[in-house]
Structure formats: C-alpha cells, structure tokens
C-alpha cells in the first residue's frame, strides 16, 4: 500500500517550518529592530524633549510645533519635494527607453553596462564635488566656453550650482539614479520581456500596443519600486544639497543637520524632529503608492 508522503518541513504552516523561518529571518530582524527601531525610538524621545545629559526634562510636542510654525518650513518642504520628485521622474523617464534599448542590444551592450555601472560606484559626495568643479561660474565648462569664445565671459555662464532651480543637484541625482532604475528594469526585461513581446506580436499587437499593454504593465511594479527608493533617498539625502544647494531655502535634511550640529544644544531636538518628519513623508509616499497600485489593479480586473 502507498503511504501518503510526509509533509515537507519547509511548509510555513507547520511548527518546524515557522521555527526555520524565524531562524532565517532572525539576524536581519535583530539588526533592524536594534539599530533602526532603537534609533527611531531614541530619536522620538529626544525630539519630544528628553535630554539625557541634562537630567531628563519634560516630554512635549513643542519642538515639532516649533518646526511646523516656522515660516520657512513650508518653503523647505516644497523645495525638498521639488528636488526629490523632479529628479526621480526625470531619472525614470530616461531609464525606461534606456532599459528597452539595452535589452535590444543584448549582444553589444556589455560596454554600455560597464559605463552604466560607473555612476553606481561613485559616492554622492564625489559627484557633488565634480558637478561643482564642472558647472560653477568659475568651473571648467564655463571657462572652456568663454575661452573658445562661445560666451562672452564666465559671468555670462548660467548659474547651475547654488541656484534657484537646483539644476546642479537635479543633474547629479539624475546621473546617479539612471543606472539604478535602468538595471532594475533590465533584469525584468531580460528575464521575460522579449518573449512576452513576441507572444503579443503573434497575437496581433502593434509596436505601440506591445509597449503599452505588455512592456509597461510588466515593468510597472519594478519601476514603481525603484522610483520609491530613489524618491525616498533623494528626499532624505543631505550631501548634494549641502554642497550644491542655495543657503536659502534649505532642503529639510540640510536644515535638520544645521539644527542638530548647532552650538546651541536647544536646537538639537528640532533637528531630530525634522528628521522624523522626513521619515514620515517618505512613509506617506510609500503608502500612497501602494494605495494607487491597488486601485489600478482593481480597475484592471473590473474591466
């Protein structure tokens, strides 16, 4: 007689399966809980006014209130949102065609891949300094243009660093993030993109229809994920705006840093409060994106 096979121990429902899952997740969970959770917890405490060096102090929301009522807060928030949104969208718009091109050129793309990997390895700080050396009014580009007579003099060169529209910051972010998003998309396209497109083609889909109804929905989850990561990073990053931004308005991370490193220790809780507000905005963005995804997929099945 045949006996039913014993269930595999890896199945999540069974007790040994759950134990194994915990053991596998354990190290990562411990680090996240200890450093990230602990850090957030201490941050919240300090932002609420807890001062370990000065005998505790009372807890209140006054520091948050001070940040929110600061007349410069909304300008800073908008500035930060502007940089993060524009750089993310621009990088995404450049990455999509690039990823499609790279998949088409599968055979010849190895050197393009190498070039694309360069921005991934260069730190933001280095890019910031490079952009500053290249694009500042006394920078290399400006001097080359005036030397060759294309512009009247360095003064005629448009302001691209420490400027109102943060062109320098945007360019650095876009340069740095394009390869990241592109590689996220190429992975999907290499895996099944071309075959699915061929299947769609024999089902009568024109090139535009294949892009609209096959490639785009296939890439959507990864594109959305990559954009969220890029947005969250550029919303919370400090180096590039610090190097290439104007002194006013400051982006939120720079403002947080200024407060945190102020000689006046009383400014420190406000700096931490700004840091927490940055985190809250990013979490809101993630929730919003998930909500949108769910809405569009429901519309998809309703059709």
């Amino acid at each position: 007689m045949f006996q039913p096979l014993p269930e595999s121990p890896a199945q999540a429902g069974t007790a040994p399966g759950r134990l194994r899952l915990l053991m596998l997740l354990g190290p990562a969970l411990a680090i996240i809980l200890l450093f990230f959770g602990g850090g957030i917890f201490l941050g919240i405490l300090q932002a609420l006014g807890y001062r370990p060096g000065a005998g505790g102090g009372s807890l209140s929301l006054s520091h948050f209130a001070a940040v929110f009522t600061d007349p410069d807060f909304s300008t800073s928030l908008l500035m930060t949102l502007y940089i993060a949104t524009v750089s993310t969208l621009a990088a995404a718009l450049c990455s999509l065609p690039l990823a499609l091109l790279l998949t088409r050129l599968a055979a010849t793309s190895s050197w393009i891949n190498v070039i694309l990997q360069i921005p991934l390895t260069v730190p933001h700080l280095v890019i910031g300094i490079c952009i500053s050396l290249l694009l500042s009014p006394a920078g290399l580009v400006s001097r080359l243009l005036s030397w060759s007579g294309l512009i009247a003099g360095p003064a005629a060169f448009p302001l691209l660093v420490n400027d109102t529209w943060s062109v320098g910051i945007l360019l650095s972010y876009i340069w740095k993030e394009i390869p990241f998003i592109t590689f996220m998309l190429v992975a999907i396209l290499k895996n099944s993109g071309q075959e699915l497109e061929e299947a769609a083609q024999t089902l009568g889909a024109s090139p535009w229809q294949r892009f609209r109804h096959v490639t785009l929905p296939l890439l959507a989850p990864n594109l959305r994920g990559a954009c969220l990561i890029v947005f969250a990073f550029s919303f919370g990053a400090f180096e590039l705006p610090f190097l290439l931004g104007k002194t006013f308005p400051m982006v939120l991370p720079v403002w947080a840093y200024r407060n945190y490193s102020d000689v006046d220790l009383m400014a420190r809780p406000e700096g931490i409060a700004i840091g927490l507000i940055i985190a809250a905005v990013v979490i809101c963005a993630i929730l919003l994106s998930q909500g949108l995804t769910r809405m569009t997929s429901r519309q998809g099945t309703a059709r």
């Binding site: 075959e195 061929e198 299947a199 083609q201 024999t202 929905p217």
Partner: peptide, 15 residues
C-alpha cells in the same frame, strides 16, 4: 502582427 499567424511557444508565455 499582420500575418494572421499565431505561434504558441514551448513555454505558455502568459501575461
């Protein structure tokens, strides 16, 4: 896409 020929692949290749 204009040939009215449908090719069914070795893999299902569903969307």
């Amino acid at each position: 896409e204009k040939r009215e020929v449908v090719l069914i692949f070795q893999k299902p290749l569903l969307f």
